[in-house]
């Protein structure tokens, strides 16, 4: 393990502990230790830590890692540094399906809403893929981004329209728009977590091949890689990761965009180094955002999707300013 990776792991560990401590009232690290290893069934704090905070910490970890990696794969696949689930309309697609479901029937069980969001995100990712995410689109980064923005706007327009016709979906809509890592019990989200974990592990053998793909399809082909199959696998990974993330936590923007950049800056251009780091960083960043969302304006919470936008947009704009460069 390189020193940087160790630093990232240490940072993540600290973030986890802080996340378990933070809330309406803060627990001490000792209390967290106590709650984890020898909980007493009567202690309210222990209960709080072991249920609510533990759940949201776990959700934030998986969602952050999933988004970070999904964004990274998308950027490699499209060779566009701005590709990410949020900007390309995957989130908006998931939202549309959820609102559709909510409009169709009010008393839907939780798993169906969850599965609906998952299917929606997956469908949207496929749509984006088919329309805009053609690998190595020759016309430069602008077209892809504009296409994604327009696609997002389209999905949003339909969500809003459905909402205006039938107000059933309003709550769901707001929940997904604002994003949350807290609202779901573990019993509902664990299958999604498993999906994320499985996909993350499944990415491992592809890392080396992505290095070649990043150098261009022709290069990858020349190196004896079945480019078509690799692209298919990559798309499936992105669809599953982004879909699961949206289904768990709703609309969380900028993590998938910024984390890969940070990771590449820290670990260099080799996928074997930066993509695992992106998972760690994504998880850590989302945890930090979640802690901030809990503590910024007590007793209320800033929705985490709003929080990541507040944190991420300035970073994004600074990135663009620095390197979005003269090549207009």
């Amino acid at each position: 393990m390189s020193p940087r990776t160790m630093l990232a792991v240490a940072g993540l560990a600290i973030a986890v502990v802080v996340s378990l401590m933070a809330g309406g009232h803060w627990s001490s690290p000792l209390q967290v230790w106590h709650a984890l290893w020898s909980p007493s069934p009567t202690d309210v704090d222990d209960l709080l830590i072991r249920t609510t905070r533990m759940t949201r910490t776990l959700v934030a970890l998986t969602v952050g890692a999933g988004l970070g990696v999904a964004g990274g794969i998308m950027q490699t696949l499209t060779r566009n540094p701005l590709a990410s689930p949020g900007l390309l309309g995957v989130n908006a697609g998931a939202l549309l399906v959820v609102v559709c479901l909510a409009t169709l029937g009010s008393g839907l069980p939780g798993w169906l809403a969850s599965g609906g969001a998952f299917a929606g995100a997956a469908l949207a990712a496929l749509a984006v893929w088919a329309i805009a995410m053609r690998p190595a689109a020759p016309s430069g980064p602008l077209r892809l981004i504009l296409a994604g923005a327009a696609l997002s706007a389209l999905f949003h327009a339909f969500s809003q329209a459905l909402l205006v016709i039938d107000q059933q979906g309003l709550d769901a809509m707001l929940f997904w728009l604002a994003g949350s890592v807290a609202a779901r019990p573990l019993t509902q989200v664990w299958p999604l977590m498993l999906v994320t974990l499985a996909v993350l592990l499944a990415c491992w053998p592809c890392l080396r091949q992505w290095n070649l793909l990043a150098a261009g399809e022709a290069v990858a082909l020349g190196a004896g890689i079945s480019v078509w199959r690799l692209q298919l696998i990559s798309v499936v990974c992105v669809v599953l990761l982004a879909g699961a993330a949206v289904a768990m936590a709703g609309n969380i923007v900028f993590i998938g965009l910024i984390v890969p950049h940070l990771a590449r800056r820290l670990a260099g251009p080799d996928h074997r180094h930066w993509l695992p780091l992106a998972a760690l960083l994504g998880a850590a960043l989302l945890l930090v955002a979640d802690v901030m969302s809990r503590t910024l304006i007590p007793p209320r919470e800033v929705p985490i999707g709003v929080m990541t936008a507040l944190l991420g947009a300035p970073v994004f704009m600074a990135l663009v300013r620095r390197q979005g460069g003269r090549h207009g």
Partner: peptide, 27 residues
């Protein structure tokens, strides 16, 4: 300015502003 930078900044700011709008609506 360049068209590319304008569009990217526009999208960044839009996302930020939508988040603010959402927050206001949620509360």
């Amino acid at each position: 300015t360049t068209p590319l930078r304008l569009v990217l900044m526009g999208i960044g700011l839009s996302t930020l502003l939508s988040a603010v709008t959402t927050f206001v609506l949620v509360s």
